[in-house]
C-alpha cells in the first residue's frame, strides 16, 4: 500500500517542530539581546562632533578640572555645557591659528553657537539632578566612565532604568569620599563594604526603600 508521506517527510516535520520550539525560545532571547546591544543603546559609539574635542587631552593630560567647563555640576540639576567663551579663555592665547579650532573661533566671531551631538539622554519623564549626586559622593566616572581616557567622548553606560536602580537599591556600593568624586579612575577600595555604609550615613543617604520609590525619579 502507498504511503501518504515520503520517508523524508519525517525529518522535515521534526525539523519544523524543533525550529518552532527553538524560535519560541530563541526569538525573545534575540530581541532581548538586540535591545541591550550597543547598536541600540549607543554605548561606546563616539559620534562626529563639530570639532574633535578630546576629554583625554584636556582633562586627562592637562588636568583641567571638570568644573572648569561644567560649572554647575555641583550646584544645579544640569552639569552645564560650556559656552564658546569658555574655550576661548585659553584658545584666544594658545593654538590661535589651529585649523582644528576654526569652528570655535568662527562660533565666537559670528556669535553662532556650536551644536554638539548629545550623548547622554534621559527620557523626559525622568527627573535627574547632577548636584545632589555629585555632592553626595557619586563620582562622575560612575555614570560617565573614565572620561579622561576618552580621545573622543562616547556614552559609557546605557542609562536604562536598571542602571539607575542598581545604585539606588544599594548606594553604599558606589559612594565615595568627597575628595574622590572627581577621580576618574576610582575603583571601590577593599574596605568599601565598611566604608560605604559609613559614607552613606554621613551623606544622609537614605538607601533602598526610599531611593527606589517611583516618585524619586518619575516626578
Amino acid at each position: 500500500m502507498a504511503q501518504l508521506f515520503t520517508p523524508g517527510a519525517d525529518a522535515l516535520y521534526r525539523l519544523a517542530l524543533m525550529t518552532g520550539v527553538a524560535c519560541l525560545v530563541g526569538l525573545p532571547v534575540l530581541a532581548a539581546g538586540i535591545v541591550r546591544s550597543n547598536y541600540v543603546t549607543g554605548v561606546g559609539v563616539a559620534p562626529a562632533q563639530p570639532l574633535p574635542f578630546s576629554h583625554k587631552h584636556h582633562s586627562g593630560e592637562l588636568g583641567i578640572d571638570c568644573r572648569y567647563c561644567h560649572t554647575t555640576v555641583d550646584k544645579e540639576a544640569t552639569a552645564g555645557i560650556p559656552p564658546t567663551q569658555t574655550c576661548m579663555t585659553c584658545h584666544s592665547q594658545i593654538w590661535t591659528g589651529s585649523d582644528m579650532l576654526k569652528p570655535v573661533r568662527d562660533s565666537y566671531a559670528q556669535d553662532i553657537p556650536l551644536e554638539w551631538k548629545r550623548l547622554n539622554k534621559l527620557p523626559q519623564y525622568v527627573y535627574y539632578n547632577h548636584s545632589v549626586h555629585v555632592t553626595k559622593g557619586i563620582g562622575c566616572s560612575t555614570c560617565h566612565g573614565d572620561v579622561t581616557a576618552m580621545q573622543m567622548t562616547y556614552r559609557a553606560n546605557a542609562f536604562e532604568m536598571r542602571f539607575c536602580l542598581d545604585c539606588h537599591r544599594a548606594p553604599e556600593k558606589y559612594v565615595r569620599p568627597p575628595d574622590q568624586v572627581w577621580n576618574m579612575t576610582w575603583t571601590p577600595p577593599a574596605d568599601q563594604a565598611t566604608l560605604g555604609p559609613k559614607l552613606a550615613a554621613e551623606y544622609h543617604i537614605r538607601g533602598g526603600a526610599r531611593l527606589t520609590e517611583c516618585g524619586i525619579c518619575h516626578r
Binding site: 504511503q3 501518504l4 520517508p7 519525517d10 517542530l17
Partner: peptide, 15 residues
C-alpha cells in the same frame, strides 16, 4: 511520534 512515514502504513488495507 511524530512519524509521518512508517512501514506499518505499507500494510495493505491499513487505512
Amino acid at each position: 511520534l511524530p512519524r509521518l512515514n512508517h512501514p506499518a502504513f505499507n500494510i495493505p488495507g491499513f487505512l
